[in-house]
Design a protein around this nucleic acid. Structure first.
Lengths: 258, 258
DNA sequence: CGTCTGAATTGATAAGGATCAAGCAATCTC
DNA sequence: GAGATTGCTTGATCCTTATCAATTCAGACG
């Protein structure tokens, strides 16, 4: 890892509050790797030797069963992944694949666990990150079990809009078939869901989507802050834990205004 | 909390390896409470002041949206719940309700966070527990997105059998409508799924279920250790983290036999 | 012991989603 | 620039699941 990479690794929430000694021992043996698009980083069932930190690009987490496959998450910078497997020294439950050219920091699992057992602040930061990941999955399961396909898409678009600064035009960050798998439907059904939302002001032009009748779309989508996290993604809020804290604080502020 | 409760609280995995000082400060202000069946312990959206530890009984974790409701998990002893919200000091994303008479230890969230920031072993134990909970949810979302209702029921029965010692007769631990909500279907559909499995040797008599043609049922269910965790539930394996470690180690042992 | 209530089952029907196929458009490769 | 490939859209059909309603059964209560 080059000296120029150090500051942006240091800024990661799991490292932001730890002492230099812990930071240096954990990252001293880490290395930064670049992967082209469509690279399989690891397969479900594989042992995991590294914690992966996505610094640039997009990574898709997938699971399969029999001949079926689904997308469990799309990761954007900066995100850790496979953190739970590393903490427990367990096999991966998901596969990971780059969706585009990626920069990934790989940190030894042994180093992570060793540092956690000695540095309470670091272990606490890891626990916070795991809490954020867990809560993110709770939201995902609620979304999947409680809503139909059109509702999931509508809420996805509203969340994407909130994360992208709130304008009328949003840009789908990856292919539609990946979005279909993420939302738990076939690509044909995603097309039909987009067509259905046409009646609510949604206009699609390739990967660009215009949300023309926001009020109508929100009435259909019925966003719920206990499912949909509108935390903006930017340099200030880059970890799952931070996004979850934002959501609660935002809710409490809304409640104070009522 | 009475002195007689201390040993079984001390035996909890999140406390098993911590020093007396941390244990005493965290549990010193905790208290053990008993609740009758159908008591709402907390509602989604509520702030969370306590970590809950289920010592006896069963608790259902639920989520709602619009007029729909689903069951996200059924907790059995010994389990923590709402741990992620406590670590982040965030609002609950799920409601919790007792399914039967319960004994629950309530530990101050402030005490938990304070102890974590000072005791690395405790923070590491909490991180391990969160990792296990997270992985449990990964299995749940894979089960939900990749399998149909009959397949989810078939695998539920096989997992219940493995956790109950492996005989032909298993006992459903709660009402069927709660099981239906957990598996992501209506009670009517659960009835129909049980009837479908009748052709695979499944005989239902109230809450007792006999699995008469194991080979047939397994062929339909196609259990997958990356989705279905057969870790036995007993006094030796009582935490989510331990169940996940069991699963990996069991898989690795199976792999060595191939 | 009789009545009431709630859970479960069963039937009929509707809605949502998956599958299969064909066609179109954009991009890539030679 | 032409041909090939891939992603997406659209149509037709089938399957799975939900909804609504009626009935049955087991347990609780007076």
């Amino acid at each position: 890892m080059r000296a120029t990479d150090l500051p942006r690794v240091r800024a990661l929430p799991i490292f932001a509050n730890v002492g230099d000694e812990t930071f240096n021992r954990v990252t001293g043996t880490a290395y930064l790797q670049r992967f082209p698009a469509n690279t399989t980083l690891l397969l479900e069932g594989d042992p995991v030797d590294f914690l992966y930190v996505l610094l640039d690009g997009q990574v898709e987490l997938q699971g399969t069963w029999k001949d079926k496959e689904t997308t469990l998450a799309i990761l954007r910078p900066v995100s850790t992944f496979i953190l739970a497997a590393v903490v427990l020294d367990a096999d991966a439950l998901m596969s990971a694949r780059t969706l585009e050219r990626c920069e990934i920091l790989m940190i030894s699992g042994d180093a992570i666990r060793s540092a956690m057992s000695e540095d309470a602040r670091f272990a606490f930061a890891v626990a916070r990150e795991l809490s954020g990941c867990y809560r993110g999955l709770v939201r995902t399961i609620k979304n999947q079990k409680l809503r139909g396909g059109v509702e999931r898409l509508a809420n996805y678009l509203l969340t994407l809009r909130a994360k992208s600064g709130g304008g009328d035009l949003v840009h789908l960050p990856h292919e539609k078939r990946v979005l279909a798998a993420l939302l738990g439907m076939t690509p044909e059904n995603l097309s039909r869901a987009f067509a259905t939302l046409g009646g609510y002001g949604v206009e699609v032009n390739g990967a660009d989507v215009r949300l023309g009748k926001l009020r109508d779309l929100e009435r259909l989508a019925r966003p719920d802050p206990l499912i949909d996290n509108y935390a903006p993604r930017g340099t200030n809020l880059s970890a799952e834990a931070d996004a979850e804290v934002w959501s609660t604080e935002h809710q409490r502020a809304e409640g104070a205004r009522s």
